[in-house]
Amino acid sequence: MQIQFYDIEGPARIEPRRIRDTRGFFMETFRDDWFRQNVADVAFVQDNHSLSAQVGTIRGLHYQSAPYAQGKIVRCLRGAIFDVAVDIRPQSPTFGKWVSEILTPENALQLWIPEGFAHGFCTLKPDTEVCYKTSELYRASHDCGIAFDDPDIGIVWPLDVSQATLSAKDREQPPLSSLR
């Protein structure tokens, strides 16, 4: 696996190596020892899988508050997503800054989103399936979010956000400034 870090400390782009032959391919998508040595020394306790039927579905920006903050490894199994991690660590010099990747089954890229980051994605193809591992169990009592279209963050979504498909919850998320 290859890894690339960003200017914002924490997130990482992970690219598994594919072994191809006439049958197709094989790849390791996760290896605990490699991940702990090269990315972060965390254990994963839950796998999640979502399906978004429509192009232009935005999910996020979500996070869990302490003491149940989650790190996530995200990958796209079908379709394509514009995946985003936003630094929400109040004392961070990169607070409010974001990184993104296009994740597809073809490129096999994965995005590591550590604790202290909000996560969201926008579907670029119909019937997109996303799978992610989390370092903490889901706790509804600590489920939080920030506005996906907050101008103080300035995410450049790959679509007209006024046409996005959103949950009622994601339409009502507070601004980033609520975290300071």
Score class of each variant (00 low, 15 high):
88 I>K: 05
123 T>G: 08
71 G>P: 02
121 F>L: 08
66 A>N: 13
84 V>H: 04
87 D>V: 07
89 R>V: 03
51 L>A: 10
69 A>K: 07
105 P>T: 09
112 W>N: 05
84 V>G: 07
78 R>C: 14
113 I>W: 08
122 C>L: 12
49 H>Q: 14
124 L>D: 05
88 I>E: 10
122 C>K: 12
52 S>N: 14
90 P>F: 01
93 P>Q: 04
114 P>Y: 05
110 Q>Y: 04
51 L>T: 14
83 D>M: 01
83 D>Q: 01
97 K>F: 05
69 A>M: 09
64 Q>Y: 10
73 I>D: 12
103 L>R: 12
77 L>Y: 01
66 A>W: 00
84 V>A: 00
83 D>T: 01
55 V>E: 12
72 K>V: 11
107 N>R: 04
78 R>S: 15
90 P>V: 06
109 L>Q: 14
112 W>A: 12
104 T>Y: 01
56 G>Q: 07
73 I>G: 05
79 G>I: 12
74 V>G: 00
89 R>P: 11
68 Y>G: 09
52 S>H: 06
63 Y>F: 15
62 H>G: 13
82 F>Q: 10
74 V>Q: 03
94 T>R: 10
67 P>G: 03
120 G>Q: 07
70 Q>N: 11
56 G>L: 02
52 S>A: 14
124 L>M: 14
98 W>E: 00
97 K>M: 08
86 V>Y: 02
71 G>N: 03
85 A>R: 06
53 A>P: 00
73 I>R: 03
94 T>Y: 06
118 A>P: 08
55 V>K: 14
56 G>M: 02
107 N>P: 02
111 L>I: 03
115 E>P: 05
81 I>F: 03
91 Q>V: 09
80 A>Q: 13
52 S>Q: 06
68 Y>W: 13
122 C>T: 13
94 T>H: 13
57 T>P: 11
82 F>E: 08
107 N>C: 06
74 V>E: 00
95 F>Y: 10
119 H>P: 13
79 G>R: 13
66 A>I: 09
94 T>A: 07
63 Y>T: 14
79 G>C: 11
118 A>R: 09
113 I>Q: 04
59 R>E: 12
93 P>W: 01
102 I>C: 05
94 T>D: 12
109 L>S: 11
115 E>W: 04
54 Q>F: 10
48 N>C: 12
64 Q>W: 10
47 D>E: 15
90 P>N: 08
79 G>F: 11
80 A>G: 15
100 S>N: 15
116 G>I: 08
51 L>V: 14
48 N>A: 09
96 G>N: 01
62 H>R: 04
97 K>Q: 15
91 Q>S: 15
60 G>N: 08
81 I>S: 02
81 I>R: 05
104 T>I: 02
66 A>H: 13
102 I>S: 04
47 D>W: 04
101 E>L: 15
100 S>M: 07
74 V>Y: 03
110 Q>L: 02
84 V>C: 02
